[in-house]
């Protein structure tokens, strides 16, 4: 699963019948995420009721299909949860590497950085 921010929505009339009536949201990953192609977004089906501006957990692959109630949906991303708070211990990775930080503008809502 990945953390992402809902930044927009997609409307389509002509689509695979399994996607009929489904809300499609554009999600910008908040931490580095590499789909097949580097385009900075993923479109996810939303069974949870997320809104633009909210931060979400996006589930990928088969579980994403199951979340829609039937594994035959031909999609590979769906919203699993709406994030309230993220707690990060900046020095958690005591491996001598750089401190972990979300990129500017990509800090999740309710981010709580503990020393």
């Amino acid at each position: 699963m990945i953390l992402g921010r809902v930044v927009g929505q997609v409307w389509a009339t002509r689509k695979n019948r399994w996607v009929e009536g489904k809300k499609l949201l554009i999600v910008r990953p908040l931490a580095w995420f590499r789909p097949d192609h580097e385009c900075g977004h993923v479109v996810a089906v939303d069974p949870v009721g997320a809104e633009v501006g909210q931060d979400v957990v996006v589930c990928l692959g088969l579980p994403a299909r199951r979340a829609l109630g039937d594994a035959r949906h031909p999609v590979e991303a769906s919203i699993a949860a709406i994030v309230d708070r993220v707690e990060v211990h900046a020095d958690a990775a005591a491996d001598g590497g750089p401190r972990f930080e979300f990129a500017h503008g990509s800090e999740p809502s309710g981010l709580d950085v503990r020393p």
Binding site: V7, G8, W11, K15, N16, I26, A103
Partner: peptide, 20 residues
């Protein structure tokens, strides 16, 4: 193939743009 067109988009709107 591993890539499949599943919808033709009527409209897509980005409400919150990329961070500066």
């Amino acid at each position: 193939t591993k890539h499949c067109v599943i919808a033709i988009v009527d409209a897509a709107e980005v409400v919150e743009g990329e961070p500066a």
